[in-house]
């Protein structure tokens, strides 16, 4: 059981003579319990990939399957939940709880309000405090999390998120990252972002795109070994991680890379001491 892409490609305006080759040659498997980070600069094909995975576009080449079926097949319905950029602009209900309960209600859940309350709790918004409020009164970080709760409430086995932390402050990002990574207990999670730094320490798998084609595909440890290649595609690892990789290149003994800056300082000092 997995969300699988094989040789996936997409051309906008195919056959018109003005076709734009937005994506080509993408392969991956996403199983429940995994976090896949899809990294790439603006225009690298990330959002096109997300639309293909959700069945909103039909591939020009290759295929997407959801537990063996096409994403727009009846048996795939409700299996892929997607959170687009700025999801908080899509609120429409009068209360946060009603907004989150809309999806499960449509899917025929027995008690959508209970499902919605669980989803709100999962993103760190107390349903008793926030459920009755108008979505318009939420702060930026709260609104983003409420919108993500709307997708969690679908209880889909695959959850896709497009730039879930863009525009949030550090507290908001921390809360969203915690909520998203916690979903792995139940679902396969794919995060599409131009700023993968804060997701890397949680990622099982990284797929990097540049101008529509994969430039790296593998584990985070493999990514660190291939970081020069990753950077030659115009992508950049977090500066604190780079410092440790550069030291490693110089021959310093660094058995494991620290993601957090205070930890990175410790790692670098220890490596320096070793050499003496």
């Amino acid at each position: 059981m997995a969300l699988i892409a094989r040789g996936l490609g997409y051309i906008y305006g195919q056959g018109t003579g003005f076709g734009i080759d937005a994506l080509r040659g993408v392969d991956f498997d996403l199983s429940p319990g995994e976090l896949l980070v899809i990294a790439g600069a603006t225009g690298s094909g990330k959002s096109t990939l997300l639309r293909l995975l959700a069945g909103l576009l039909r591939p020009s080449a290759g295929s997407v399957t959801v537990d063996g079926a096409a994403p727009d097949a009846r048996s795939a319905r409700g299996k892929v939940a997607i959170v687009f950029q700025n999801p908080e602009s899509q609120f429409f209900a009068e209360s946060v709880l009603a907004d989150v309960a809309f999806g499960p209600g449509n899917l025929g859940a027995d008690d959508p309000d209970v499902v919605a309350a669980d989803a709100l709790a999962a993103v760190g918004l107390d349903p008793d405090t926030f459920g009755g409020r108008s979505p318009l009164t939420l702060s930026g970080g709260e609104a983003r999390r409420a919108a993500i709760a709307g997708a969690l409430a679908m209880r889909a086995p695959y959850l896709l998120l497009d730039e879930p932390t863009a525009g949030l402050d550090s507290r908001g990002r921390r809360d969203v990252i915690a909520a998203v990574t916690a979903e792995r207990v139940r679902a396969g999670v794919a995060v599409v972002t131009h700023d993968p730094d804060e997701f890397l320490s949680h990622a099982d798998h990284v797929l990097a795109l540049s101008e529509g084609a994969p430039v790296f595909d593998g584990s985070v440890a493999a990514l660190f070994d291939a970081f020069r290649e990753y950077e030659s595609a115009g992508l950049r690892l977090p500066e604190v991680v780079r410092a440790q990789l550069l030291a490693r290149e110089r021959g310093a003994h660094i058995p494991s890379i620290g993601f957090e800056p205070r930890e990175a300082a410790r790692v670098l000092m220890a490596a320096r001491g070793d050499r003496r």
Binding site: D169, S170, R171, P238, E239, V240, A243, P261, R262, A264, A265, R266, L268, M269
Partner: peptide
């Protein structure tokens, strides 16, 4: 709630040592 550059935190850690 202000994001410090991570490298500033790292260099502060090095200076402290």
């Amino acid at each position: 709630g202000v994001d410090l550059p991570h490298m500033a935190v790292l260099t502060a850690g090095l200076r402290a040592r």
